[in-house]
Design a binder for these strands. Structure first.
Length: 320
RNA sequence: GGCCAGAUAGCUCAGUCGGUAGAGCAAGGGAUUGAAAAUCCCUGUGUCCACAGUUCGAUUCUGUGUCUGGCCA
């Protein structure tokens, strides 16, 4: 917020936008115009062996424009916003040290938020405890656990709908692990002081229907390029299951259901495309009320050169 | 050509013993702190195929037509 500070801190570019909006193409184009290195901000790209369905840049593109924080985790492993914050800060520092500009590009808005605002000091997930609470919920229903939460953490409970399974679970987990209410720990959170100056950009499609068409075409392209073979390889391992964050990813979840015989091929395609549209909608909801955002309109047909020039203009107005 | 079954929300269908209708999915809006490509909340007016008849009143009953599917020729 301090003007003097703003001048001295090194700039870092944030490039956000819904899925299938052309973020990757734009990020790669920017690396050819500016001395910047890409850090991926995407909860699905972190996984190894999940390339086609996650729309990961192909090998040739990665050769040209390396991405950090992709393909470093096995799909059996969980990842988290807190872990991302830690990893991203490390990568940003590394790139700044080498005298270049970090370019954070991706569609996981919570990760961007946590990077900007920091995160409360909370215990990590406890799989055994989660399993136990999930069993309890299956028996008594989430409203019953919400009831229980109200007794130990009325502030959190008041903010949560009785059906909000995931967040009721987390609040109960934190309390069980620390003996302190989640809401109390969150109130103790210190505001993050960033060692850099974020320039926040968002690629915003001006036509939802056009974005829907791009999503459909991209899904069909993924199928042609061997998406099902990729999922079959994961399926054949035998140790992965649909409750894992990796396998819950858009497209993979539906492909899994198809391989398990729960969906026909046509149903899988329709459900996969719909899930992608819904993801884009949620990403746009984040972006619509995002503070300090420079929006880059994305018109159909997508003109990469034009969009790149518009982006460079915004960046230069912000000291790059 | 004959017989039978359908025709209701973008899709699949339910329903109205005659008082103009509702689920799932899709879609739209919102929330979002160690699963976030996750999870959760809110939003349902549509010539109830068309025309005629019966009726105070028809999407509902009757008749005719049209279209779709099945069976028989």
């Amino acid at each position: 917020m301090l003007a003097a500070n703003t001048k001295t801190l090194p700039p870092v570019i944030f490039l956000m936008g819904p899925t299938a909006s052309g973020k990757t193409d734009l990020a790669v184009a920017l690396t050819e115009k500016l001395p910047c290195d890409i850090i991926s901000v995407d909860s699905a790209l972190v996984y190894r062996g999940m390339d086609i369905g996650s729309a990961k840049p192909d090998a040739a593109t990665l050769q040209r424009a390396p991405h950090r924080l992709i393909s470093f985790l096995d799909p059996s492993e969980p990842y988290s916003a807190a872990q991302f914050r830690c990893d991203a800060l490390r990568e940003i520092e590394y790139i700044l040290h080498s005298g270049r500009i970090p370019l954070l590009a991706g569609g996981t808005m919570l990760y961007f938020k946590v990077l900007l605002e920091g995160i409360a000091d909370l215990p990590a997930a406890d799989p055994a405890l989660r399993a136990q609470l999930t069993t309890e919920a299956a028996q008594y229903g989430w409203p019953a656990l919400h009831q229980k939460l109200a007794e130990v953490d009325p502030v959190s409970a008041a903010q949560l709908h009785p059906n909000h399974s995931q967040r009721i679970l987390r609040a109960l987990e934190v309390h069980a692990l620390t003996g302190i209410a989640l809401s109390t720990l969150q109130q103790q959170q210190q505001p993050a002081s960033l060692p850099f100056r974020p320039i926040q950009l968002a690629l915003m499609p001006d036509d939802r229907e056009a974005l829907h068409r791009r999503i459909e075409q991209r899904f069909d392209r993924m199928l042609r390029e061997g998406f099902m073979d990729e999922v079959r390889r994961l399926y054949a391992r035998g140790d992965l299951h649909p409750d894992l964050p990796a396998i819950r990813a858009v497209g993979y979840r539906q492909a899994w259901d198809y391989l398990a015989g729960n969906l026909s091929e046509a149903e899988m395609r329709a459900a996969g495309i719909a899930a992608t549209r819904q993801l884009a909608k949620r990403q746009l909801t984040w972006l619509r009320n995002w503070p300090q955002l420079h929006t880059i309109p994305m018109q159909e047909p997508f003109d990469l050169e034009k969009v790149t020039l518009a982006t460079l203009k915004i960046l230069s107005a912000n000291g790059i």
